[in-house]
């Protein structure tokens, strides 16, 4: 296992040690790549999302986020699973509609709308967000995630994907 001297000729022993290393390396790669790929394959699958009708534009009051839960089926391996999520649909003063996930950007607790202070508060570590979803206090590093929204004939649709 000691290194050969600089001008030493390649001994038979050295030749076989090198050969073994090459074969071991090839085997390692030939097995390693498929096995790692096999392990991470589900992480590389893209999930497809559909538009979900979630609220009625006529029933929304500007400046009052509406808490909505929505449900969709996703593929879970070889099965399908129902997923339930919560979002806040907000009609802003200028009539624009946004949808924010209720998932705190700090460590994922569910934020709630506090009607008296007019902000979203997180129960876990005191994160606070304004009605736009921007952080105003606490540890969250970025604004609440905005979901894709569209309005069709007074119905608000969202898609469970980041805007």
């Amino acid at each position: 296992m000691e290194l050969p001297e600089a001008n030493e000729t390649l001994s038979r022993r050295r030749f076989f040690v090198n050969g073994i290393k090459v074969v071991a390396g090839l085997l390692g790669l030939g097995l390693g790549i498929p096995l790692v790929g096999f392990f991470i394959a589900p992480a590389l699958k893209k999930e497809q999302h559909d538009w979900i009708a979630i609220a009625d534009l006529n029933l929304m009051n500007a400046g009052e986020p509406a808490k909505v839960t929505y449900q969709y089926t996703r593929r879970d391996g070889w099965k399908t699973a129902e997923t339930r999520k919560t979002a806040f649909v907000v009609k802003h003063a200028d009539g624009k509609i946004t949808a924010l996930t209720n998932k705190c950007t700090h460590l994922g607790c569910g934020v709630e709308w506090n009607a008296s202070s007019k902000q979203f508060t997180c129960p876990c570590h005191g994160g606070v967000f304004d009605i736009q979803g921007n952080v105003t206090a606490g540890p969250p590093p970025k604004p609440l995630t905005r979901l894709m929204v569209k309005v069709e004939v007074n119905k608000i649709f969202i898609k469970d994907a980041q805007q």
Binding site: P34, L35, F38, A41, P42, L44, G77, W78
Partner: peptide, 12 residues
Amino acid sequence: YIQNELAFGGLV
């Protein structure tokens, strides 16, 4: 699922 849907599943 392993055999037909996963990457390298058939091989492994």
